[in-house]
Computed example of a mutant assay.
Amino acid sequence: MRLIKQTANILTIRYLPWGVWLFGSLMVCLGIIALTNAKLMTLSCTRDLQQPTQGQCTLTKSNWLGQIQSQRSLQLQQIKGASFFPVGSSKGRKIYEIYLTTSQEYVPSSIRAWEEMQSEVRRIEAFLKDSLQPQVTLQEDDRFFSYFIGLVIVIIAVGINILFGGISTLSLNKITKKLTLKKQGGLGTKIFECGLNQIDKVIVTSSKVRLHEYHVLMIVLKANTALQQTNIRQVIFGLFFQGIVGSVIILRPPSLFFSRKSDYEKCAKQILDFLHTGGYLQENSDRK
């Protein structure tokens, strides 16, 4: 929350969720990276049945749009066989990369095979030995998986920004004698109003989860004050505190990732001082 306006009669504090926006933007970037890293690897070998020694094997790499990024061809007579080498593992299963063997080098196909799919190598070797077999094709297509992961990440990022990326403005006005909380976000604009004389206390509470300490700034209203909740977090906290400290307005933290207790206490002091000078709170109504 940041102080926007302060006069003798008006106090306005606004929360811009830079942390949420930054986090959402980073997630969108990750989703786009997942999309653009999708690829289709193809190894296609063909033979001229009229001249069985004539033919070629072509290694093709296509991007997520199906556009060819690289291509390499080897004449059939250059290829002596096929082999595979372990390149890693996943979930306890070994992953192999298929190679074409020539008299001078091993040419990687960039096609990965699981431990139980080594029959793909035998398909290539069978093609090389069988002069009556016209064609063999192997493919590794991870585009659907990458599309799915990328889309899920983008949807989550958009959802986070819709739910938690709204701009909150808190205004206390001694002329109208009202507190107004306005939240503008992807779900529309919501406004809550109550009288300044309905405020019971302004408190900062802290709780520790593992090694991190979390702080919450709350404006506690007097009992039986109707409160229109404005987001999921407020609903959760409102339900938790209802009947214990009355209806509660939860003010968002200055940052998503880093929150210093002094920031909350400073914001609480600004509100308390404003209310004290108007006689709306007793001086002993302190922060806890």
Rank of each mutant, 00 (worst) to 15 (best):
T230F: 05
I153P: 00
K174M: 07
F240C: 02
V152L: 11
V220F: 02
V121C: 04
G186E: 04
V209F: 09
T225E: 14
S207N: 08
K190E: 06
E140C: 00
K222E: 12
I153A: 06
L151D: 02
E125P: 00
L196T: 01
I199W: 04
S146K: 07
M218H: 07
F241D: 08
K182M: 02
H215E: 09
F240G: 10
T137N: 11
K201D: 09
I156D: 04
N224Y: 08
E140S: 02
P134Q: 12
L187W: 05
G166W: 01
T205Q: 14
F148I: 03
L221R: 04
D200N: 12
K182Q: 14
S119A: 12
Y214C: 00
G150L: 01
L211P: 00
G238K: 01
I219R: 05
L138V: 08
S206K: 13
D141V: 00
G238T: 06
M117D: 15
T176K: 10
L132I: 05
M117S: 12
P134T: 11
F192E: 11
F144K: 11
F241S: 10
A113I: 11
S171C: 06
S131K: 08
E140F: 03
F148T: 09
L128K: 05
L172V: 01
I232L: 15
V220R: 15
R123K: 09
F145E: 11
Q198Y: 03
A126F: 10
R233T: 11
Y147R: 09
T230C: 04
M117V: 01
K190L: 04
I149H: 00
D130R: 05
G186H: 03
V121F: 05
E115V: 01
D200A: 08
T230M: 14
F145Y: 04
Q135F: 10
E116N: 15
G186I: 02
V209Q: 12
V209I: 10
E120L: 14
K183V: 14
E125I: 03
K177T: 08
D200M: 03
F127C: 04
I175G: 00
A223S: 12
G165T: 01
N197I: 02
H212T: 15
I124L: 14
S207T: 15
H212D: 13
R123H: 14
K183T: 15
K177E: 15
G166S: 11
E193D: 09
K222G: 04
V136C: 08
G185R: 06
F148D: 06
E140M: 07
V216Q: 13
Q229F: 09
I191Y: 04
I167P: 03
E140L: 04
L179H: 05
D141S: 01
T230V: 11
L170K: 03
E193N: 15
A126L: 10
L187A: 05
F148A: 09
F237E: 12
T176D: 14
